[in-house]
């Protein structure tokens, strides 16, 4: 049985903001299925009482003092912008959340 359906791949593409076309969907669905079947092997390990590791080196409380340091100028900040206007980053219209 396939680990992942074409519809699920389409859903992932939407979540990840990837405009994947129909042909690619088929390709990715097949490839992801192979990969997922392989990586699902992690489930074979009995690990119910094993704590997860998110950080390999056990450091805690790495904090910074509340002291201002110089940052970027507006020009530097906007230097890579695809589009800028009035010192701000310009973007196309945003789908609104309010009806």
């Amino acid at each position: 049985m396939a680990a992942i359906s074409r519809e699920e791949v389409a859903h992932l593409a939407r979540l990840a903001r990837l405009a994947v076309n129909e042909t690619e969907l088929d390709t990715f669905a097949g490839q992801l299925d192979v990969i997922l079947q392989a990586v699902a092997r992690v489930g074979e390990v009995a690990a119910a009482d094993i704590p997860p590791t998110s950080h390999s080196i056990p450091l805690t409380n790495i904090l910074r003092d509340d002291v201002v340091q110089p940052g970027l100028t507006q020009q530097e900040a906007l230097s890579g912008a695809p589009d800028a206007q009035d010192g701000r980053f310009r973007v196309p219209r945003i789908l609104d959340e309010e009806a």
């Binding site: 990715f28 992801l32 990969i35």
Partner: peptide, 30 residues
């Protein structure tokens, strides 16, 4: 890159997190 983004998005999704990402982190401990 697209493949891995989709794979990772899947592994972190609600409903799959424990079986994939969570379990992988336990394997990391082992």
């Amino acid at each position: 890159v697209t493949r891995r983004i989709m794979l990772g998005t899947y592994a972190l999704s609600s409903g799959y997190y424990e079986a994939y990402y969570g379990q992988a982190q336990k394997v990391r401990t082992l």
